[in-house]
Amino acid sequence: MRCVCRLLPALAVLAMLAVALVPAARAADPMTGANPTAQSVNERDLLNALGKLQGRITIPDGKAATLEQPQGREYRSFHERVLPWLAGIIILAVLAGLAAFYLIKGRIPAPPRDPGGRTVLRFSAVERLGHWLTATAFVVLAITGLNYFFGKRLLMPLIGADAFATWSHWAKYAHNFVAWAFMLGLLVMIVAWVRDNIPDRVDIAWLRAGGGFLDGSHPPAERFNAGQKLMFWGIVIFGLAISVSGVLMLFPFALLDINGMQFAQYVHATAAVLLIAVILGHIYIGTLGMEGAFQAMESGSVDLNWARTHHSVWAEKVLAEERAPRAGRPGTPAPAE
């Protein structure tokens, strides 16, 4: 009896080995001894080779055929980790830089007004309409867009999940519909101002002088100085990138597959953050930064001395055009300046 008890553990080990070896032996090819199961392509190999796993479906929605797509994990990491930090750092850095510049340099004062009270037309009604349409739409888009990756972190803890869900629901509708107003306004601005924003030699001198922000000088400038031209092209490039990628997302999977949709969101979010940074600088210059700048976009006209100070080359061209018709009329002497 004792011998049998001593043999039981050894018999148990032999039984376990037999159970483990029998399936492999059965699966092996009796002629070659190869195991087809061990040599088959596994899921990881397919993902590495194809980038996604797809199946065969009979329903109309073709997107359901993608069973697993590893790029989705990369997109989720970008959206949930990289993007919030990227946006937060860029926006806070721009705000801090503008605040520091204002505290150090203060507001650029307006020159003494023209003794005769003369003004020049700087922006037409169509130009102002395009500007304010784009600006208003962009404010709505920026607020509702930032909600996508800051809302649940900053807003939801303050107002609660139910209120945040309601706000996000309507914010999404506002974002989708106001986008068309932004694109229309952007198109108007491009048509109206692209000619005046082509770089020229005057811009080189303006950049070398740093725009006069450090020493208080006023280097010559055309209708738009080099800084404004850089801002214009930044708005155009980032605005077009936002518009194209946004339209692709408004009509999901019409032209792109899942990888294309994710790439469109990369472009949309990154360009939007950069455009917000550019617009913050534009808002600063147009309000706190420079006295008299807001009046140009409010009424369309600016004081003649203000134009001569900040845009001397353009101001002289405008005055020359005003003098030309009067100088061409018989008996009407051209005014001396």
Results as ranks from 00 to 15, higher is better:
267 V>M: 08
222 E>N: 14
263 F>A: 15
233 W>G: 07
289 G>K: 00
263 F>I: 15
214 L>T: 15
274 L>Y: 09
263 F>K: 12
203 D>P: 07
241 A>E: 10
259 N>I: 09
246 G>R: 01
218 H>V: 05
173 Y>R: 09
268 H>E: 03
234 G>D: 07
248 L>V: 15
198 I>S: 01
209 A>L: 04
288 L>V: 05
184 L>E: 03
174 A>F: 08
269 A>D: 13
203 D>E: 11
277 A>G: 09
176 N>P: 02
219 P>H: 01
263 F>W: 15
231 M>Y: 13
265 Q>A: 14
244 V>W: 09
198 I>H: 03
286 G>Y: 07
211 G>T: 07
289 G>D: 08
216 G>N: 13
175 H>Q: 07
237 I>Y: 09
205 A>C: 10
280 L>C: 08
181 A>F: 13
258 I>R: 15
265 Q>D: 14
206 W>I: 03
199 P>N: 07
294 F>Y: 11
235 I>N: 14
284 Y>Q: 09
284 Y>E: 13
260 G>Y: 01
184 L>F: 11
227 G>R: 00
253 F>M: 12
204 I>R: 08
208 R>N: 14
239 G>Q: 06
230 L>N: 12
255 L>K: 10
251 F>D: 14
286 G>A: 15
281 G>V: 02
190 I>R: 04
274 L>T: 12
186 L>C: 08
208 R>F: 11
226 A>Y: 05
184 L>W: 12
280 L>G: 05
256 L>S: 03
240 L>Q: 05
255 L>G: 01
183 M>Y: 12
269 A>N: 14
194 V>N: 11
200 D>G: 10
220 P>N: 07
178 V>Q: 06
